[in-house]
Design a protein around this nucleic acid. Structure first.
Length: 635
RNA sequence: GCUGCUGUGGCUCAGUCGGUAGAGCACAUCCUUGGUAAGGAUGAGGUCGGCGGUUCAAGUCCGCUCAGCAGCUCCA
């Protein structure tokens, strides 16, 4: 029979030959490297029999899919080892994830990381034994019988949920058999480098109401060196942790007296204010106006907006003069009230109404994380009230702003479209209309996105923009939400060309998302080494001796008077020490001034990360600094 | 909230077998005026996260609790 290879060439094989036979026929080297096959685009085991005319691609560890197969087999090796070391444990699921794999297991008595050595030793034995890994299939009934025999009730539950009539595949290695779609490596001996990484709780089927299982995380690489590199990379990433840097750089503080309510310190406030200044300039250019609505409003308002019904668990409430009130968890209801203050003409729309609103939300304690997840944060919010025909343009406008801002910082982001959640309000028709409008805008912009079913806000679907932190966890920052509900609930109107009253449509949107979270991401992105325009302190003037102290102070004053940020280090320390300290503080520019500089009205400049860049006049340096600072100024 | 781990001066960490605490950095004072990544001396600073228990004796053992970290769930 003939099969077709990746490069289009044909290969002649005996009928009944497997993908492994094909690899052998191509080359000895390929046979050694092969971990799986792709037959007609479908990932499969190497031992899969081929048919006349199949398109075949041999998958090796160099392919992403090959590494995934490798790690998946490693998860099975872990499971087999666990069944040996802890015979009473019950297996749940063991998938591949980015950078590794995990297995969820129900243990009689909890295990700890101390047990890892034992488990890893057993895994090594299994690898050394080089068990062949064999695939077989059973009917649903037989599959249930088999898994029941092993007392694997989680597996039984999984099988019961599989569609009727389908054959169910299993993989057997040595005495161990696991329910699995596959594919897998041909034998356990192919695994070269693996490590168990951590342990955590995870709910069975991701459901908070179900039993919590023990999740064992592991990783595996083709070579030991690659694994070492990976762990080194993780160590490096930890040094960028914004909680650690925020403390070291005195940007913010997290205290027990306000769990989830961050304190912003002077340097952190500079950073925050610089971001806010930039935001204001940008939004002025884009035709936004700015308002501020109250922090506390009455229960009747929150009932009207639907928050009291759908969001109460996350709201802080209080009583004022006997009346129930809530601290705002969102800015929209306040914005609605502002819109309603006056009648509007279709000629006024769209109205783009921004608000840097401080919102409070009661997040569960275990969910708090540095600045990324807090209980009070500033949203760089805006509500856009518009005509139906303006929807697409307005969405595109917001996407453009978000892209401009993220690009400015050099962020990579990915986009998700979140649809109607279980707990929500409004008609299906409105939800469909809104979801389709968002989808249409994304398609028109040719922006790639993934759909996140059921993750929308309770009042409408949304487009979410996600940014990565230093260890590649992603955080939602920007979001665009299309809302047909609030305008109805608040009875918003405009007078159309026809003189009749109409209902405007509204967008909620944020660019930074939460300024606090955005700052967290920025700290990790720059590892604390902020560009000049963001740096809390831009210049440190370092006099060599007391004789230059007055000159240093005057220079720092001159820079500050221009709205830039400098200070002089007048301590009685050696210059080397002052340089070290300023470097540790990550100040972009250090100016060394001694007798020579005082004499010539010059400065000796050190740039962060580059060292000594030479002597220049005060005026030249200030021009240089100003240019870098003004890079991002819009007006 | 759930599971696991951690909690010792402002920071980073030692502290063995239970015998009532130690270092470096930072801080203060003094000496040093030194030209591109740590000058020297002296000093002050801790009821060992909190509460309770076991014990002649608890940082150390036990229980509870609070907080932090990782993951799950939820979310900007």
């Amino acid at each position: 029979m003939k099969i077709i290879l990746k490069d289009g060439s044909e290969l002649d094989l005996k009928s009944g030959a497997t993908a492994k036979d094909a690899a052998r026929a191509i080359s000895e080297g390929l046979l050694r490297a092969a971990v799986a096959a792709k037959i007609n685009g479908q990932l499969a085991d190497l031992l899969t029999a081929l048919c006349e005319g199949d398109r075949l691609e041999i998958v090796t560890l160099k392919d992403k899919e090959g590494l995934e197969v490798y790690r998946h087999t490693c998860a099975h090796v872990l499971a087999q080892a666990l069944k040996t070391v802890f015979p009473t444990c019950k297996l749940a699921i063991g998938p591949v994830i980015d950078n590794g794999f995990y297995y969820d297991v129900d243990f009689k008595t909890p295990i700890t990381m101390e047990d890892f050595a034992k488990i890893e030793a057993e895994m090594k034995k299994i690898i050394k034994a080089d068990f062949p890994i064999e695939r077989f299939t059973l009917s649903r009934e037989d599959a249930i019988v088999l898994m029941s025999k092993f007392h694997e009730n989680y597996k039984v539950e999984l099988i019961q949920d599989l569609p009727e009539g389908e054959e169910i595949s299993f993989y057997k290695q040595g005495s161990f058999t696991d329910l699995c779609r596959g594919p897998h490596l041909p034998s356990t001996g192919k695994i070269k480098a693996f490590k168990l990484v951590s342990i955590a709780g995870a709910y069975w089927r991701g459901d908070e109401k179900k039993k919590m299982l023990t999740r064992i995380y592991g990783t595996a690489f083709a070579k030991k060196e690659e694994m070492d590199e990976y762990f080194e990379m993780l160590e490096e990433a930890k040094k960028r942790d914004h909680v650690k840097l925020g403390k070291e750089m005195k940007l913010f503080a997290l205290l027990n007296e306000g769990k989830g309510f961050p304190f912003f310190l002077p340097s952190g406030m500079i950073l925050k204010n610089v971001l806010v200044d930039y935001w204001r300039q940008l939004h002025r250019r884009e035709g936004y106006v700015e308002v501020q609505t109250p922090m506390i409003m009455t229960r009747t308002l929150w009932e009207n907006s639907g928050h009291w019904e759908h969001y109460k668990d996350n709201m802080y409430t209080t009583k004022i003069d006997g009346e129930d009130c809530a601290v705002k968890p969102m800015n929209c209801p306040g914005g609605m009230l502002v819109y309603k203050l006056a009648p509007h003409s279709y000629k006024d729309l769209p109205i783009r109404m921004g608000e840097l609103g401080l919102v409070h939300r009661h997040e569960k304690s275990g969910q708090l994380h540095g600045l990324m997840r807090v209980r009070c944060f500033t949203q760089d919010d805006a509500h856009i009230f518009m005509l139906p025909e303006q929807i697409t343009d307005e969405i595109k406008g917001v996407v453009r702003i978000i892209d401009e801002v993220y690009s400015l910082f050099g962020f990579k982001y990915h986009v998700e479209l979140s649809t109607r959640p279980k707990d929500s309000m409004g008609s299906d028709e409105d939800w469909d209309k809104a979801t389709n409008a968002l989808r249409a805008a994304l398609d028109e912009l040719k922006l790639p996105y993934v759909v996140n079913e059921g993750d929308g806000a309770f009042y409408g679907p949304k487009i979410d923009f996600h940014l990565e932190d230093s260890i590649k966890r992603t955080w939602q920052c920007g979001t665009i939400q299309l809302d047909f509900q609030m305008p109805q609930r608040f009875d918003l109107e405009y007078v159309g060309e026809d003189g009749q009253k109409h209902r405007p449509i509204m967008i909620h949107r944020v660019v930074f998302g939460s300024i606090e979270r955005f700052i967290g991401i920025l700290i990790e992105h720059y590892a604390g080494k902020f560009p000049v325009w963001l740096a809390p302190e831009q210049v440190k003037v370092l006099p060599v001796t007391d004789r230059a102290a007055a000159y240093a102070t005057e220079l720092a004053d001159r820079i500050n008077a221009m709205g830039l940020r400098a200070s002089a280090d007048l301590r009685k320390e050696k210059i080397g020490r002052k340089i070290l300290d300023a470097e540790m503080e990550k100040v972009p520019y250090k100016l060394i001034v001694g007798d020579k500089e005082v004499e010539g009205n010059t400065v000796s400049v050190r740039k962060r990360g580059e060292g000594d860049i030479g002597v220049m006049t005060q005026d030249d340096f200030i021009a240089l600094l100003k240019k870098e600072n003004d890079e991002k100024i819009i007006f």
